[in-house]
């Protein structure tokens, strides 16, 4: 475990050092993130506006959903995208060979090798938005409530990671699978709004097929203290199953890895 922690520290230290080599690029990344967040707030203010409600969610409660979405988007920018989008490149160029021959879990390497600081302010803003909006709604979570909320947020992160990694794994056979991850990102965008704001049929689709509901609405419900035991259990089950499937799928896929020709 100590070896993995030290490796992780060195992974991220080198990732940061690598990005600081290009100051201007990092600055532009941060500016783009600020612009994106401002746009997101503007769109939701058009939809809701104080006093209005959508799908039974008030403006402030909906902001909690947006807060969770912002945190997830920040995690995508900082951790998921920089790492998982390189899997296809590693397969295409054959550099996956180096990773597979290291005495360390290849999934760990591919999932945590790098990080981009550009998503960190977004994660901070998302958490701030959650706290502010939850206070406005009047939610005062007990320690158990707080723990549940943290657990549901962790669960949503695991689901998102597993789906993304699972899609990236298909590059072992198809090499270029960026389009599939774009679909996943588009689906995540649907999670900006509470799931009950969508028509019933779409709601089922966004819960069962693309588990968008578990990504943003369920953690928001937990934060607001509105979550049922069943929903919480379903979210944990979903996270466990997707993580196990994605891990099994990666191991299975490696049997078919043929490595790029030299």
């Amino acid at each position: 475990m100590g070896r993995y922690l030290l490796t992780l520290r060195r992974f991220w230290a080198t990732a940061l050092a690598g990005q600081l080599e290009y100051q201007l690029n990092l600055l532009i990344d941060l500016l783009a993130m600020a612009g994106n967040l401002a746009g997101s707030l503007f769109v939701i203010s058009l939809f809701y506006g104080p006093g209005r409600s959508l799908g039974g969610w008030s403006w402030e409660a909906a902001l909690v959903v947006l807060g969770v979405y912002t945190v997830l988007d920040g995690v995508c920018s900082s951790f998921l995208r920089p790492n998982l989008s390189t899997i296809a490149t590693h397969v295409q160029q054959g550099t996956l060979d180096f990773i597979l021959l290291k005495p360390i879990d290849s999934q760990f390497w591919l999932s945590f090798r790098t990080f981009s600081p550009a998503g960190l302010p977004e994660i901070g803003t998302g958490l701030g938005l959650i706290l502010w909006a939850a206070a406005k709604v009047g939610a005062s979570p007990s320690p158990t409530g707080f723990l549940t909320a943290a657990l549901m947020l962790a669960s949503s992160l695991v689901i998102l990671y597993s789906l993304w990694f699972g899609l990236a794994t298909t590059s072992i056979w198809f090499v270029k699978t960026w389009n599939a991850t774009e679909v996943l990102r588009a689906a995540l965008t649907a999670g900006r709004y509470p799931i009950s704001a969508y028509p019933l049929r779409l709601r089922s689709l966004l819960t069962v097929v693309l588990p968008v509901a578990f990504l943003t609405t369920v953690p928001a419900e937990a934060i607001l203290g509105r979550i049922s035991v069943n929903t919480g259990a379903a979210s944990l089950l979903m996270a466990t199953v997707t993580l196990m499937l994605c891990r099994g799928f990666w191991r299975y896929a490696l049997r078919f890895y043929t490595s790029a020709s030299s």
Binding site: R3, R9, R10, T14, G18, T95, D97, F98, K102, S262
Partner: peptide, 23 residues
Amino acid sequence: MGQKQQLIWDLPPLDSFRVNAAV
């Protein structure tokens, strides 16, 4: 592999060595 590299492109080789040492 002569055609492929594992060193981190933007950093000095010593940084890559430190990563390998941890691994």
